[in-house]
Design a protein around this nucleic acid. Structure first.
Lengths: 339, 339
DNA sequence: CTGTTAGCGCATTCAC
DNA sequence: GTGAATGCGCTAACAG
């Protein structure tokens, strides 16, 4: 079933069928209706590769996401929501989605760029990938429109979308302050990662504004995983002026801090309040449930798609300023005195 | 940069370039090397839509996964691993991957089938989708090769891949028995879902084999989510002959049962041992850590791809028998007396 | 071993 | 408003 067959059966030329199905103005309403009718009866669907070939555009965008071990604990729960959001936003904009392979160690540096060329992709969305990915660097340096969520590359046609990490951290600290806490410590992520650095900055800004002292011993670094949170929690609880609250830059580390508290015979939230970041699934499952700064996955996905479309349509897009998506503080048992 | 340009620059015809790049035998080693060299220097990559058009095959398979709310709590953590596994296995087999949109309520029933036709997809992999999806039914009924992981449709060119739910449940019960437990209850999932039914069957078989009584009050149904586990746990702990161990068909429900035990003043694992199913991220985060039956996401993904390739190559494939992937019992604190 | 030719399915000129 | 003709980039069939 192709356009020629459909044209034959409807008694018109292939050109007319094409025009009718593509909603061009220069077709009479009557023939258009007849052709559409017949097309749906016969289950005709235009061949996309052929369309791509002649139109020189594929209406397809590529999706790159790293599933490397590095990101496993960090973004795992997060990623799927992002993926769904991106998929939905893209299909509403009538784009198709191609999943690009994570390049192996022996792949050429231009692997991603080549994939874009091969498939005629019009743009790429990148989800949370390590900043040192060579393939990504090459891609970003090219003229291919790229929208990155939580990524750290820049290029001529690149936009970055990110949660408002600083504001989220500030909100967490303010919340703890409002509960009466004055000795608030923090567990950071690896500070070379932008989100980790931004969350620390937010913590520091809030403390400064609220007039809270931040002795160096109140800031300790983790790796976003559980065990580092346990260790960090132990360190913090051993400080002379023991903190009464901890803001952890990631939920797994926050849970780890709760474990450390339990091991030290402290009760959460009575003796120690804890707030995390990300709202991973487990945050609602632990006891007490973890208060946390939730990222807006849907908002991130939609913003990325919107930004990418701007880039594709060559609309004037500010490629330097990141799109910042607000976060939302979820107050649960780990910081609620009544719990 | 296209094949004609590359041919011009290397002083041969486009046909020779095509043969060289596609590893056809009838090209001299010298010219092949020269062409390859030039191609990589110039960053030439063949245009896939054009190849697809003429070869009548796309080397692309479609991926359908449901992100509907139904599956959120149940499969969320699980899906991403599956996705990674499928992507990796597919790219190793030199297939491209296209993400198909979840059909909306106003999409025609043939939406998926149309997408396959439009893009010339050679097969489809379906991840954990509700059994009543009309689009999926239409697709499965067609001649399109389909491999489903944890799905419930059948068709002329369809294979199903699934974890060995029954054996996993049996292993869990045996483990509890070996620890000395004789009063072992279970929390099931919604029994109209195949995995839930299979896990219950495994539980029952193991109990029968071990000579354990299974009073009706020892079997209670949940919906795979946390709250249903809490409620089920309460019911089970209120039974006259209180069980000393619970096998839950899902991790969230298992955690819920642990909460119920804590609320009743019981200690896990001393007063009540708990084993779950799936090994979601949270299983390792709760305290005590949850023993659970882990599914082999990588194995499931690879089996699905292998089965699909068999279907595509029209190799003799048994379309009726599901591919069963073994599970692995992870023993953690919730069932380890020493913990 | 290599070149010439045809055509995959479609959108798009240009005529009418 | 509609039809005939052209070519997108590539592979396959056929010559040589």
């Amino acid at each position: 079933m192709n356009i020629r067959e459909l044209a034959r059966r409807s008694g018109v030329s292939t050109a007319t069928v094409s025009r009718a199905l593509n909603d061009r103005a220069e077709v009479s309403e009557a023939t258009r209706a007849r052709i559409r009718q017949l097309a749906s009866e016969l289950g005709y669907a235009p061949n996309e590769p052929a369309r791509t070939l002649v139109r020189r555009r594929s209406d397809t965008i590529g999706l790159i996401w790293d599933s490397g071990q590095e990101a496993q604990g960090l973004h795992n729960p997060f990623l799927l929501g992002l993926l769904s959001a991106v998929r939905t936003a893209l299909s509403e904009a009538d784009y198709h989605l191609m999943l690009l392979t994570a390049p192996g160690p022996d792949d050429p540096d231009a692997a991603h760029l080549q994939a874009v060329r091969r498939h005629n992709l019009e743009g790429v969305i990148v989800l949370t990938t390590p900043p040192d990915d060579r393939c990504l660097r090459v891609l970003a340096a090219s003229a291919v429109p790229c929208a990155g969520i939580d990524t750290a590359f820049t290029g001529p046609r690149t936009v970055r979308v990110s949660s408002d990490n600083a504001a989220g951290a500030e909100a967490a600290v303010e919340h703890l302050y409002a509960l009466g806490h004055r000795r608030i410590a923090t567990i950071t992520g690896p500070l070379h990662l932008p989100p980790a650095a931004e969350r620390l900055a937010g913590y520091q800004r809030a403390c400064a504004r609220l007039g809270l002292p931040v002795p160096p011993s109140y800031v300790t670094e983790g790796d976003f995983f559980l065990d580092s949170g346990v260790a960090a929690g132990r360190r913090l609880l051993a400080v002379a002026e023991r903190p009464t609250a901890i803001f952890a830059a990631g939920d797994q580390m926050a849970v780890g801090a709760m474990h450390a508290a339990a091991d030290a015979g402290l009760s959460v939230p009575r003796d120690l309040a804890v707030v995390g970041f990300d709202d991973i699934d487990a945050a609602a499952l632990v006891r007490p449930a973890l208060s946390t700064v939730a990222q807006d996955q849907r908002g991130l996905g939609e913003a990325a798609v919107a930004a990418l479309r701007g880039l594709i349509d060559a609309a004037p897009v500010d490629t330097a300023e990141p799109r910042i998506i607000p976060t939302r503080l979820l107050i649960r048992g780990s910081s609620r005195p009544g719990a």
